[in-house]
Design a protein around this nucleic acid. Structure first.
Lengths: 228, 228
DNA sequence: TCTAATCTTGATACTTTCTTAATGCCTTCC
DNA sequence: GGAAGGCATTAAGAAAGTATCAAGATTAGA
């Protein structure tokens, strides 16, 4: 199972690892596992997982130490598993940067609920994906296009076309590539659509539509978006 | 005593409130307390605390309901206290937006450690409670909508729809997004509902419903709330 | 139970967008 | 220089999407 959130499990008990692998994969997580702390740290650096589940009792180095070493360079949400239920252990782990602390034995339902909470916390602000070129800016996350600060109205097709260009800004997109992505594979020969829609886009976005500075034609090949 | 993080305690047991007040104040928190859910919601809106500690068992409305009502307008870190230790209670609370869940009796040390975690997660910068655009203002915390200072009566569905727009003010919400959030995922194709309800909202909120200045249509895509 | 409010559904007029075609420009090649 | 092909521009009918009204069904409250 793949394409879900990536979880790194650091635990020396093979039964726990097995249990978590099976259970989490059944719930569409992509699970990676290691059996000791040092390996855990290097795997975390290599994999860049979305979530870490860390056992406190590891054979090589203390789980708390693993957590501290992780927190030196990453804020990846980390949930602690431990057999110890004492306050001072919990406090130490939470204050060392853990996002949650569960005592073994734990229920899978609760663990997964707390994993969802951790993931909620992980993505606070939507990172801006704004493409800017000259006086035109395109915000794919908000579906907003502005020229000189004023909003520009684009039809669904015009926007889909522009998005295609932005996603490959700077590169030349062939006629067929664009037609396939925006209109669908059965429209690959309808090159006149491109003419009409690029003219409309230029009308709305270019300072002087007859002298394009943003949407550039590559004769005989396709079109390209200028990168500043 | 003051100037520390502001904590709102919502719990009907006076001994718990007393215990928390004394303990937390000794640790430089500024503590406010209420004994029921409805008062808790309004105090939260008024105080804008940095943290909320919420008991599940309240005399007036269910703690879960309080949490949901809070999450309609604020992301203030909220820690749940409960006598119930069952998985389904924990999962329900955590999935309804709680940041942590502690079972009574709990240790003060652990609670405070978890409060510190919650505060770490808190996004800096308070979000405004009241959305205003032109002569219309929408107060999500108090579920009140006014036009030119006069209260506007909205049906439950109308309000849910408007809330959805306010929570993403300025952004385009697609038809499907709105239908899924307001009516549920099984209504994702019922675009006709949007037409009817947006017409009703405009009738009640716009100066000239035929020339919308607040609720804007993005043809072929969805709707958007004007920002100022 | 009855009443009033709200939700759901259908009909119709209207607006925007898509598709298609016609025309003219420019560059390239003979 | 002239012809040919690729490109830009405009416009009009077709199609899709949107606004509005109103009546029947359902639900909630007295």
């Amino acid at each position: 199972m793949s394409s879900g959130p990536r979880v790194l499990v650091i635990d020396d008990e093979i039964q726990i690892r097995r249990f978590l692998r099976i259970s989490l994969e059944a719930n569409h997580y992509e699970v990676y596992e290691v059996g000791n702390g040092l390996e855990g740290i290097s795997r975390a650096a290599q994999l860049r997982p979305d979530l870490i589940i860390l056992d406190m009792g590891l054979p090589d180095i203390d789980g708390l130490e693993v957590l501290r070493r992780l927190r030196e360079w990453t804020t990846t949400p980390t949930i602690i598993l431990s057999v110890r239920d004492a306050d001072e252990d919990k406090v130490a782990a939470l204050d060392s940067g853990a996002d949650d602390y569960l005592t073994k034995p734990f229920s899978l339902e609760e663990l997964m609920a707390r994993m969802r909470v951790a993931q909620r916390h992980a993505q606070p602000g939507p990172q801006p994906t704004v493409f800017t070129c000259g006086n035109v800016s395109i915000d794919l996350a908000h579906r907003q296009v502005t020229k000189n600060g004023e909003q520009v109205r684009l039809t669904p097709t015009e926007y889909a076309l522009l998005r295609q260009l932005v996603q490959h800004a700077g590169r030349v997109l062939t006629h067929k590539q664009i037609l396939k992505e925006v209109w669908g594979p059965e429209y690959m020969e309808e090159t006149h659509y491109l003419r009409v829609y690029f003219a409309q886009l230029r009308q709305k976005l270019e300072d002087d539509p007859s002298l394009p500075g943003l949407i550039l034609t590559e004769p005989g090949v396709g079109y390209r978006l200028a990168t500043d």
